[in-house]
Write a protein that binds this DNA or RNA. Structure first.
Lengths: 332, 332
DNA sequence: TTGAAAGCGCTACCAG
DNA sequence: CTGGTAGCGCTTTCAA
């Protein structure tokens, strides 16, 4: 089933069918009608591969994320996608599950598809892969891969500031024994949160005791890490989690051990995903404007109108501390 | 950057480069090495559109889901994807957000891409769209679109049985005033759950009072629907939710109103997503084997080995009732 | 073991 | 307003 067959049936040339399908250039309406009729009768659907090959153009954007099961990534994707759709772009999504091989495969796929732009919202990006993308010379937006450079745009969130507020708040409430529940991936944004936590905590005097544990980026991971933490004998009065998802896991573990939040232990999350308001107690967290990230990424990827090329520049987004019920004054 | 250029640099023909890249047919290893070297130096990535066009074949499967923000859909997708990846297929994902236009667009996209198979895990599928897919003659697996037919495979879950267990359990515990929190989409699986609820509830004597409200398929939707329910003056002792996500929203609303679960009101979900064990109280629900659905869907889509063509047949999956903390005996 | 050439289905340019 | 035709980049016979 091809353009050719439609052309034959409508008794016109392939060129004309193409014009009708892309409604471009003048086509007599009677001809147009005849073509459309043939298209319908033959149940014809243009082959997108052929179209892209011939046209050279490509209105498809690629998005790669680390963990779609974490609402943070989904929200960023969703806002980027709807902005793109509204502007007439298609979006391809790839999920790596933090696995380097899948990241590589996804990048190759996107390059092979000759996407018009790529948003890499992943924390496991390494220098080699960045090079790969640069060499392919496809417009790329990264999320927190560190210093941008060349044709690369980098969107960063000022995690440090957010994390400082969290720890300061806890310290002010009298917490002297804190723990950090992070996840396995030390690179990128989540690693930065952990580093910041440890640095900030180290500055207090009298000193604040602290300890760090890690787990998978999931509710189960948060629960296990918390279990390990508590099993180690350390008795934190506050647990700072790398994100909301893991914080919900921490909440579960604490409850299972008969500990009350926030009376016995305070807990904080990060991201302010919707779940943070639906768990109980409601999570104290740091809001990261995910839809702003998605929309901004798209704005730097679209190429129809002239956009400022921020070569090597990083755009920084400010997070916002949100105090809710999961935090209270330090217990004995 | 094309095959041609690589061929030129390696001083071989395009055909040979193609052979090396697809490692097929005999190629002298010295030639192979030369080609690989040229590929690396040129940072060449084959154009997948050209490849698909020329080859005719296509190892890409399409998956369309209604709401990726609901873990149910994500879980099905994920298991299907990993089965597919392991078997050497690529997977394209499209999310409709329950919007009919996006469903149509997604289907057209998949057909245009000439995917090797399509899994439509959506509840808003209508007869017209099913025809569209049939006409495109692409192997398709539907999720609960009702009676299958023609080349179509349909995977169904015996919701009725699951819902009966839920209502029976509640009735046994003495609940005489029940409410159903459903979502806007009356078609497909979720509509069936609602219908079943109403039918089962109607059978009891003395009669069980009941009422149904609906909202969006999200935690917020569940909260709002519950708010509307309670605002109407009806005082259910048990709230049966169409799925876990909305049940978590119901939990939130009840807590906000100072009602204790399960002491004052019992709540049930459906699906048994991971969240059901991480909220509190833990949700009584019905387990739907999502990974089984994903894997099964893939098995009916793969075409390398001969598979039984279940024309017009429906395969049925059994759900399992899971009693947890969100249910208790009826309050006064 | 390798090369030449014929498409795959479509768009875009050039005539008419 | 419409048709002819040259590619787009790759795979795949068919010969050599």
């Amino acid at each position: 089933m091809s353009l050719e067959e439609v052309a034959r049936r409508a008794r016109v040339s392939a060129a004309t069918v193409s014009r009708v399908l892309n409604n471009v250039e003048p086509v007599k309406s009677s001809t147009r009608a005849r073509v459309l009729k043939a298209v319908a009768e033959l149940k014809y659907h243009p082959n997108l591969h052929a179209r892209t090959l011939a046209g050279g153009r490509n209105r498809t954007l690629g998005v790669i994320v680390s963990n779609l099961a974490n609402p943070f990534f989904f929200d960023v994707f969703e806002s980027l996608e709807s902005a793109a759709l509204a502007a007439g772009y298609d979006v391809m999504l790839a999920n790596t599950g933090y696995e380097p091989e899948r990241l590589v495969a996804s990048i190759r796929l996107m390059i092979g598809q000759r996407v018009a732009g790529l948003a890499a919202i992943v924390s496991e990006m390494d220098a080699r892969l960045i090079r790969l993308l640069q060499d392919a010379s496809i417009p790329t937006v990264f999320y927190d891969v560190g210093p941008a450079g060349g044709e690369i745009t980098n969107i960063a969130v000022d995690y440090r500031k957010g994390m400082e507020k969290v720890v300061d708040c806890l310290h002010t409430l009298g917490h002297q024994r804190m723990a950090f529940v992070g996840h396995h991936n030390e690179l990128g944004p989540t690693g930065e949160r952990q580093k910041t936590f440890e640095e900030v905590v180290a500055h207090y005097s009298p000193p604040v005791q602290h300890r760090t544990v890690t787990g998978a980026d999931s509710m189960e991971g948060g629960q296990r890490a918390t279990s390990e933490l508590l099993g180690s004998g350390f008795r934190p009065t506050a647990i700072v989690c790398v994100n909301d998802l893991m914080a919900v896991g921490a909440l579960r573990e604490l409850r299972d051990r008969g500990l009350d939040v926030p009376r016995d232990v305070s807990v904080t999350g990060f991201d302010n995903v919707r779940l943070a308001q639906f768990c109980s107690p409601r999570l104290t967290t740091v809001h990261i404007p995910r839809s702003q990230i998605g929309v901004t990424a798209f704005e730097y990827l679209r190429s129809d109108r002239e956009r400022p090329r921020l070569a090597g520049q990083s755009i920084v987004i400010e997070p916002e501390f949100i105090l809710r019920d999961s935090v209270g004054v330090a217990s004995a």
